[in-house]
Design a protein around this nucleic acid. Structure first.
Lengths: 129, 129
DNA sequence: CGGTATCCGAACGGATACTG
DNA sequence: CAGTATCCGTTCGGATACCG
């Protein structure tokens, strides 16, 4: 304990902005749901149908998180059967702009990533012999 | 099967750019490692010390993934004991620019997210009674 | 020093059944 | 329709031990 030299870790990294964004966007479905809501308010069922492979559990969970973070707004209609719709809030829209930056990067550079992967895998395979 | 109405899901979402970026950045440590490498080449040990809470396993795993994706380059030095350093590639730097967009968003808007969460939790607590 | 391999608990996430 | 609750397999990720 006392003998340990106090080379402090870059604490800022622990508390820094990156960790916080990651909490939000690192979930697999968050970005996809936001993308569906990009062009306006949607019913729950429509969101579900538009995102292939999402389970009801994950969709609801994702929408809850987005609502809690103030990124989407939820409106329930007291009809029978009940209907609910979701929309991006202004805060959500502002985040969406940044997310678009990621999408654009991917469109331009993803082929390079794929090539790098193939090359790496070939090198590894060769090295494993 | 045949009886199912063919309401196709928005397939583009499945194959779209977002899924691909998420593969890369949704990992908890990727962005943090990139941040450490932002200002130049670093030894393995230095990266480890700068990121609080990262285990050796996860750091190595993260660096492997970044290397495979062509985002960082790895140089081993055949000294005794061996030393290894890592640096962002040009491709990695280009992604870093987008990542900075997220950091900046967080710096500006995160307080709003925190307030939204507190408000939501208060509403839930009240509703649960 | 910079890994790799193994073990194991914790968390993620899908399938299913039930509710208002 | 839009959830909630439960079960349960899969994956994530830390701790430990060992290798070059």
């Amino acid at each position: 304990m006392a003998g340990k030299t106090d080379i402090a870790p870059d604490v800022s990294i622990n508390a820094c902005a990156y960790r916080r964004v990651l909490e939000i966007i690192s979930s697999k479905w968050i970005v996809l749901v936001m993308h569906v809501l990009e062009d306006g308010c949607k019913w729950y069922g429509e969101i579900a149908r538009r995102i292939e492979g999402v389970s009801q559990k994950m969709l609801t969970q994702t929408l809850r998180q987005l609502e809690r973070d103030g990124l989407v707004s939820r409106r329930g209609h007291p009809t029978i059967p009940p209907a609910v719709d979701y929309a991006l809030t202004p805060l959500g829209e502002s985040l969406m702009e940044v997310v678009r930056g990621f999408r654009d990067w991917t469109r331009v550079y993803y082929p390079q990533v794929e090539r790098a992967r193939e090359e790496y895998d070939r090198r590894m395979e060769a090295g494993a012999l």
